[in-house]
Structure formats: structure tokens, C-alpha cells
Amino acid sequence: MSAICIDDLRVAFGELRVLDGLSLTVERGEIVAVLGPSGCGKSTLLRAIAGLDVHPTGTIAVAGDVGYVFQEPRLFPWLNVEKNVRFAARSPEEVARVEAVLELTGLQKARATLPKALSGGMAQRAALARTLVRKPSVLLLDEPLAALDALRRMQLQEALGEIIATVGATAILVTHDIEEALYLADRIVVLGGSPSRISLEITLPSHKRRNRDANLTAERSTLFHALSGDELRQEESA
């Protein structure tokens, strides 16, 4: 069975239809990046999968636990890093995993630090660690690196790729960054139109995945045109 199976997903906020008949299947261990212009419903898709107040119609089937990482770290400011991670633990096994997760995310030295004293990258690592402590089989990543500077974003992309591979999770990564999608994803899905549906899908050959030196010129160009075209159409219709 696939890790995520979405069929004919529709979401509307009152009169405004955001997603219209979106179908997407994600295999176990696959990383799918979702690209699209702002407001196209990328986050809405993740919220619908996580069951967060968007009232979708259609079917969404997810195998196993879902972990959600938001664009902002959303750490509990009164808890230090370790206690933030421990917050998500439900069982003794999950509490016992806190240590390993701190190590995996490179946070052992920052364990006693309060969120207000963390850099953006460290805070986002802590948010990821908090999610990972439950060993979710599906990770929903809602532009988790968008607020970081370019260098830190690239570093964290590599860390994120390794971490997802290590825990063997399936992931949907929402991003507006073509390079991030090209680096991290096995498959890239572009949302477009209004209301949105999948306008383009690219599967990257395995030798080009998680490889900064891969020649991705053709893919980059295809994505660029798909996204720009959509933007133009939106401007014309507006």
C-alpha cells in the first residue's frame, strides 16, 4: 500500500475554491516536493492531510502517524530544546528516543537552551526533532526552511535529506524554492490554476537526487516555465 493516497481532494473556504479535484499518491519512503505560486493551496493540501480545520471533501488515506513541521519553528518558548522535544513524547519508548533525536538533529549541545536564544536554523532543527520523536511514517513539511538565509538553508537541506533517509519516512515538502525541490525531492509536483490542481509532475532520475552537482538544467527550466506561466495567467485573470 502507498504511504499517502489522495483522491479527488476538494477544499473551499466559503465561496473560494482552493483545491479542486486533486489526486496524488506518494509511495513509502518517497519525498515529494510541492511547488506553486503563493496562495495556490500548497499549505492547504498539507493541512487537509493532517486534518487541520480545512474540511476537505474527497478521500485522504495515510498509512501511519503524521508529523508536521511548520514554516515557523513554533517552539514552546517556556521550554528549553530538550523539553520541547520531550513534549511530543507519549510513551516511555518515545521519551527514550529524545536523546537519539537530539543527536540526529545535531542539538545535543543546545539541549538546555531556551527558544529565544536559538538561531533560526537551530530552532527549526528543534521543531523537526520534536516531530521526529514520535517516529512518524509521514512527514509534512510546510516550507520549513523558507525563513533561513541562503547558506543555512542549503546546509539544512542536506541535513534534512539525511534525516529523512535515516528515519525512513515518507515526506511531502511544500516549498516555493525550485532549487530546494530539485535537491531534496524524488518527485516534484507543481500546483497551478485557480482553483488549483496538479499542473506538472516531474520524477527525478535517482542519480540526480540529493546531488548538488547533478545537471538539472532541463528540469529547472521546465519548472521555471510552468511556474512563470501560471503566474502570468493569474495576473491576466486578475
Binding site: E72, R74, F76
Partner: peptide
């Protein structure tokens, strides 16, 4: 509201949301 949403994504019972998130945040 975003912190409360984290607790909800983690599947916390409303009572646990109140005692573990809302009250500490409002402390």
C-alpha cells in the same frame, strides 16, 4: 494560536492543550 495548533497536530486532548500549552503560555 500557532502554538495551540502544534498541540492539536500532536493529537493532544483539549484538557492537555489547556494545561500544557494555554496555561503555561498565559502564565
Amino acid at each position: 494560536r500557532k502554538l495551540v495548533e502544534v498541540a492539536r497536530v500532536l493529537g493532544l486532548h483539549p484538557l492537555a492543550v489547556a494545561t500544557r500549552v494555554v496555561l503555561p503560555a498565559a502564565f
